[in-house]
Structure formats: C-alpha cells, structure tokens
C-alpha cells in the first residue's frame, strides 16, 4: 500500500561541479553523467520511500547526449525496471530549448518518457507515448488527482483504462493506496517554488 510520496529537490548544477571539481556547469562526458546519476541515486537511498524527485537542470548550460542518456534515460529506466532498487518517481525542471534535443533523442531511442515541469508550473511530456497514454496523462495532469471513485467517469472502461495502468508502470503518474491517480507535477509542487 503506497502513501503519497514526499517530494525532494535535487539540483544538478552543484552535483556537476562536485563531480568534476570545477566551476563548470556543463553536463558533458559519460563519466560526468554517470557520477551525477550515482550521486542522485545516493541521495534517493537516504530519502523515504516512495520518493518523488524534482531533478533541476536549470543551471546546466550544455547537456550532451551521453549525459542525457545517463542522467535522464538511465535514471528513468533503472527505476522503472521490475528489479528497481526502490519506488521512485521523477519530474525534470529547467529543461530549456537547448536541452530538448539530446533528451528527446535518448528517450525516443529507448522508448521512454519523462515529465517536465515548466517555469509556469504546467507540465509537459518528453519522449515516447502512444495516443491513449498521452490522453490519460493530460487528463490526470488537468485534474491533479483522480480519486478511484471518479476513475470510471474520467477514464471510462475502454482503451484509456488500460493506458492508465501502463502510465503507472512507466512511472508517469502515481497511484496511491486507494487507487487514486496523481499528476507527478502536482506532487513536486511543494519543492518547486
């Protein structure tokens, strides 16, 4: 039975500077990306469970494909696999136009998707989803939370219903102990301001 997770904020800029022991905020090279991902995982290991993490890329100027793979795709993949180390969900913040290309490329290649929180508080999806998954995600996002008793009204009993389960599996929405569906962007709101 899962309670609604407490959100934590992880700013990637300081992690980059620590991992390469410099003042740079460029998230480049695979070893740097791996070091940052491992640092994020270490922070998660000390947090409660389940965890929802707002991964903040705001300070990152350059993000290359190797680091997009390590810090976005591998992180998502690792915590959506059956043998995942813990229950963890992720929302990315500070995804600017300059980051979009590498992030989209690695997500599409691995058929992954990620939630990104814009500066105005709205959210968007990056990566690969089918039409039903996108529709369900938008519904949950607009509602904030869909309690179990309203799920038939909101999702019906057709293809959208099965898409709900897939989104839960893909860690793109959060299902609480009562069957309520939560938008990830709302769950990170307490640490987003």
């Amino acid at each position: 039975m899962r309670s609604v997770p407490d959100p934590i904020l992880i700013e990637v800029g300081p992690l980059v500077r620590e991992s390469v022991a410099s003042l740079y905020s460029h998230l480049v090279t695979r070893p740097t990306g791996r070091a940052v991902r491992l640092a994020i995982e270490a922070m998660l290991a000390e947090a409660g469970e389940p965890t929802i993490t707002l991964v903040d890329l705001t300070e990152i100027t350059i993000l290359d494909y190797s680091c997009a793979d390590e810090v976005v795709a591998r992180l998502l993949r690792r915590y959506s696999e059956i043998d995942r180390p813990r229950e963890a969900f992720f929302v990315f913040r500070g995804v600017q136009e300059r980051h979009r290309e590498p992030i989209q490329a690695v997500l599409e290649r691995q058929r992954l998707a990620a939630v990104s929180r814009r500066d105005d508080g709205t959210a968007e999806l990056l990566g690969t989803l089918d039409e039903d998954e996108s529709a369900v995600w938008r519904l949950v996002e607009s509602e904030g939370v869909v309690p179990d008793e309203r799920s038939d009204d909101v999702f019906g009993n057709g293809s959208l219903r099965t898409a709900v389960d897939r989104l839960v599996e893909r860690r793109l929405i959060f299902a609480d102990a009562t069957g309520g569906m939560h938008a990830l962007s709302r769950l990170v709101a307490p640490v987003a301001t």
Binding site: H26, V28, T29, R30, T61, I62, S66, R98, P102
Partner: peptide, 20 residues
C-alpha cells in the same frame, strides 16, 4: 545565436569518441 549549444555538444561527443 543558440547554435553554440549544439556545436558544443558536437565537440563534446567527438572528443569523447577519443576517450571511450
């Protein structure tokens, strides 16, 4: 003006090709 970002990414990737 934004081209410096993809150019930097190209630089990073070609240099990593050497190391990796």
């Amino acid at each position: 003006a934004t081209a410096v970002v993809p150019f930097s990414v190209i630089l990073s990737e070609v240099c990593q090709n050497i190391l990796e």
